[in-house]
Design a protein around this nucleic acid. Structure first.
Length: 434
DNA sequence: CATCCACCGGAAAGATGGGGCT
DNA sequence: AGCCCCATCTTTCCGGTGGATG
């Protein structure tokens, strides 16, 4: 077992011992002139470019503005559901249009805007709490909105009070609304006016990556929301190029070789026209060039960056997962490493998982819970699950397969303190298990 | 072609722990 | 302090599933 550690490069660079000849290493790094980037923040994910830098979404902006037009006059805006693949400019356009609406509101009309990321605030309570806290100006309202601890109803109460005191109209963006565990917040927001909870007009922009989401919405929700639906198409390669062209001032002049942007665009276009990915690759390319002390960013950097961007995302995904889920993934990666197969029946994985838990004295979960964890990982895209029916001699089975290379998964997981001791034990164990 | 295997997944409720309110 | 609310993770129980099998 002498695979290279995934973390090794970083670790060795950070190590305090050996190698330095007494000068101030940290200072050397910090004071180093950035020869590649002029303003890296232009390439950050949530950077909202100014209006003239938004590419190829004029129609979408126009349509959305149309739906929100009444807001600037102090009337109720339409509710909107926007769907489209990731990186097609959904949140960008929403943020842009709402902030323009706020700026261009007629005299005497005060518009509030809010942006809620439902992937991190996935329950009704969290979302309302976030909203109330976002809008609340303690000086004006004399209210405090705690992060947790209140009942959902209490959060709504505060939200209504805050809105009444401060705004005529608010426009609320619910990003990744499909990740919401239930849709009652949509109901409550759209009913708030008619039920007399607040006199503030409320418009909701719900953004979803899944096209089916709008169809799955509860009929009751749909009828009270009466949403207008908009679909965003993926960017084509030309648009992606222009998007990146617009951000070249993130780099020092002359650093980008001519084929860098077209190549980033081509890669991203392959991946469903995802602008976020295009910019990710561009940023990674720059970072690579910087690390290698290159004078220019070249095609080679881009190709390398593409795989690196993918791995980064993947590593973050695994590291962010709870302990038990890691044990489950570890079980699956060990099985895959030690067998010609790639798919394993749930029962088999469960046995391997139980072994792991016993060895490191981690609580062994019930099989039922274990199945749920597998399913959660499948939802994250780490595992692929196939259904199989062995009929009378085995009933229904799920076959679980790691999406990524099992050796890499194993290396990432074994770095977790809790599991490292396993690494040493494993060589002997493996012989008897297999 | 009805049966039946044994695994799947929904429902409900318990445990734990974070926090606010009066 | 004592009570309430919520989120998250977990267990227990049990009806559902659907193609290989005889």
């Amino acid at each position: 077992m002498d695979l290279p550690r995934v973390n090794e490069p970083r670790r060795s660079r950070l190590r305090a011992d050996g190698g330095d000849e007494g000068f101030d290493v940290a200072r050397e790094i910090f004071e180093q002139e950035d020869t590649i980037f002029a303003n890296e923040s232009l390439l950050e994910i949530d950077h909202v470019p100014s209006a003239d830098r938004i590419v190829g979404r004029d129609d979408e902006i126009r349509m959305l503005a149309e739906e929100l037009r009444s807001a600037v006059n102090g009337h109720s805006p339409e509710n909107v559901i926007i769907y489209g693949k990731t990186g097609t400019g959904k949140s960008l356009v929403s943020r842009h249009v709402t902030s323009r609406a706020k700026e261009l509101a007629k005299d005497g009309v005060s518009i509030g805007t809010a942006y809620v990321d439902c992937s991190t605030h996935s329950t009704e309570t969290q979302a309302v709490s976030t909203l109330a806290r976002h809008y609340n100006e303690p000086n004006v309202t004399q209210l405090r909105v705690p992060e947790t601890g209140l009942s959902t109803a209490a959060y709504y109460e505060r939200l209504w009070t805050v809105l009444d005191l401060q705004y005529d109209v608010v426009i609320i963006i619910l990003d990744e609304a499909d990740l919401m565990t239930d849709d009652s917040i949509l109901m409550k927001l759209s009913r708030a006016g008619e039920s007399g909870s607040t006199s503030c007009r409320i418009g909701v922009i719900a953004i979803s990556n899944k096209i089916e989401w709008a169809d799955d919405l509860n009929e009751r929700v749909k009828s009270s929301l009466q949403p207008k639906e908009m679909a965003f198409q993926p960017y084509d390669a030309t648009q992606l190029e222009r998007i990146m062209e617009n951000r070249t001032d993130a780099f020092q002049s002359g650093v980008l070789t001519s084929d860098v942007i077209p190549l980033c665009a081509a890669f991203a276009a392959q991946d469903f026209g995802d602008a976020r990915k295009a910019i990710d690759i561009l940023r990674h390319s720059g970072n690579l060039a910087y690390k290698q002390d290159a004078e220019q960013v070249t095609e080679t950097h881009v190709r390398e960056a593409r795989t690196e961007a993918e791995k980064d995302r993947f590593k973050e995904l695994i590291e962010g997962v709870p302990q038990q889920a890691k044990a489950v993934l570890l079980a699956l990666s060990i099985l895959t490493n030690n067998s010609a197969q790639e798919e394993f029946a749930t029962q088999l994985v469960y046995r391997q998982y139980s072994n792991i838990c016993k060895t490191i004295e981690l609580d062994t979960l019930s099989e039922r819970r274990f199945r749920d964890i597998l399913k959660e990982q499948a939802f994250l895209g780490l595992i692929d699950i196939q259904k199989e029916n062995r009929g009378r001699s085995g009933g229904i089975n799920l076959l679980n397969r790691l999406v990524e290379d099992s050796e890499i998964v194993y290396e990432i997981l074994i770095d977790d303190n809790r599991f490292t001791e396993l690494d040493d034990n494993l060589d002997q164990r493996r012989v008897q298990d297999w």
